[in-house]
Design a protein around this nucleic acid. Structure first.
Lengths: 189, 189, 189, 189
DNA sequence: AATGAATGAGGCTTCATTCAT
DNA sequence: TATGAATGAAGCCTCATTCAT
């Protein structure tokens, strides 16, 4: 039924966009991959842009939920960050195509009124900033610029992911979390 | 003369692409900004893709040259990295549009045979890796995974730049170099 | 039962087509207005064109029947024309949407094999021509070109209707019949 | 040069639209008739709708100019109307396709924000109304409802034209002006 | 008899590229 | 060398129609 088809389109789109890039992907390509007619996609999405937006919204919301659960576990800042990285990198290892789309296509159609994706990314960074602020307040980490730290953390994470997803380096995703945590070890008191 | 016109096109392209994104930029837009006719662009570039490639090639080569000069100064690894960051961040502060293009459009037309840009980016990372290897050999820094470190360093740098170039946070580029160096302080012996 | 549904579709179609025009009306719009599923329409009509054809056929036949009744009353030509105008203009005042469809959509799909509507319109003009011929024969009106007169009469009638149905001038339909009759007063002996 | 091409497109569009109707005409058809590429049309018009709008604007402006000239001749109301009809009917006899487009396609895309055509038609009716008002003031014609008279006059004119342009009746355009004038003879004092 | 998700042909429009001036 | 009108392939999207339930 309805939601099945929408999910099928989402998954097909992730695959094709990961392979070809968003701008090089034609609606027909997505339809072919999903084994549907083009018209069917338009029964679920109003435009090509909306397909990509939906992928981001869907995945970021899953991550936000996962983070909320993590927060409820009242972990130390270090363990929280570690678990967050573990989960995120594991998801990407299991679905590298999704990762490719998420890191590569975030800049699409900036010129249009599609700030939704940007906002979703920023909400993730904001969440990281909150974690650092909290860590500082709980005297678990040193008094650093939490905002800059969040951007730095997110950037290094994205950088590794982006590089790792370049096919032959996927194993970098295995070592990533530990490496990152070790790099910021010095901010913990 | 010839080179003047080519440079004018390059600069116009950087401006427009920074504002609209590569895929949303039409050759006509570049021509308008350069106050030239579209046809003229094709006297200097064989295609739209080549305009972007040229921007990357031109800028990366400038950076590589700047790095070569730096290498000849026989600086310590720490001072080398610091100077590299300073120069890079300063350039971007002086020409944020260029930065926007470099960080955002690197993924363009992956599906096509346009690996040139990718190779240029990778040569920068390779260069960083060399620096870390050299630092390890000279016993200036600890024995870490140089490749992963280069990717991490580059990623965090790009992350800050990307975020900083989102208009209202340009000042992040001022604090960036010191922040990054402090973050990796622990790898120095 | 069956005929109820078909009438519901006809009425819904008149409303939507009056508002949006035939070519801007989608089958889905008609279905929505009739509170039915699109598929249901196809149980009663074989195509979108047929829906419009049916509206014309249905209404013109009603008018022809009304005219036949009028003819049986053996009225003078003047009184016949007056009663015909009165009835017609009254119907349109009661259902302006129907009028809008009848005057505006008569030209649709000329290029296709859909002459049915055209024929229906022409049969109305032919009927008017008969009335004028008869009037001449009965020496009630002067010897004019009956065919041209019919076209003229029909055109002026349509013109007023078309203009009147432009929302704010509906009251023109009230004065219309008398005005038209007065205009052709001179043809009566 | 530029204006030549635009005129070529306008003329080709009139022909094809007269034959097929606006909605059944594809941009490709217009391009074929004009012996141009589709893309070329878009160098002169921003959309298909605009092509039709332009035809109306262009022709109505010509008529308005022709009317202004007529007004300067200080003719009696009767002679003015006669000359106006003569000119108009002659133009249509010389270019029946133009007439077909003007009478048939005036209702197109009402649902969109394309009131331009409507306004152009109304300006013609308004002009006629002015003529009648002036005639009343100059005591050349009786005291009738000038607005209704203008609508009536315009409608009957359109009706004859519409019917006449149905191929086999073109000669109706020859008798039209005199017939119409005779019909309204009684309004002159 | 009613439903509405799926279909896919077809139209409008865009825009990189060419080429005659 | 510069120009910009002309080109036409290609993509997005619409919507009448079908058909399994």
């Amino acid at each position: 039924m309805a939601q099945e088809t929408k999910a099928r389109i989402r998954k097909a789109a992730i695959e094709v966009i990961a392979e070809e890039g968003f701008f090089n992907t034609r609606m027909q390509d997505i339809a072919d991959r999903a084994q549907l007619a083009v018209g069917t996609i338009y029964n679920y999405f109003s435009s090509k842009d909306e397909v990509l937006s939906y992928i981001f919204k869907y995945e970021i919301q899953r991550r936000m939920k996962s983070i909320s659960e993590l927060k409820e576990q009242k972990l130390s800042t270090r363990r929280f960050l570690k678990k967050f990285l573990d989960r995120h990198f594991l998801t990407l290892r299991e679905n590298p195509n999704l990762g490719r789309v998420l890191v590569r296509e975030k800049e699409f159609s900036r010129a249009k009124d599609n700030n939704e994706i940007k906002e979703n990314m920023n909400s993730l960074i904001k969440m990281l900033e909150d974690i650092f602020v909290e860590g500082i307040n709980k005297a678990e980490i040193k008094d650093i610029n939490a905002h800059l730290m969040a951007v730095y953390f997110f950037g290094s994470m994205q950088g590794i992911i982006e590089f790792a997803l370049t096919e032959p380096e996927i194993e970098m995703l295995v070592d990533g979390p530990d490496f990152i945590i070790k790099r910021i070890e010095h901010i913990f008191k």
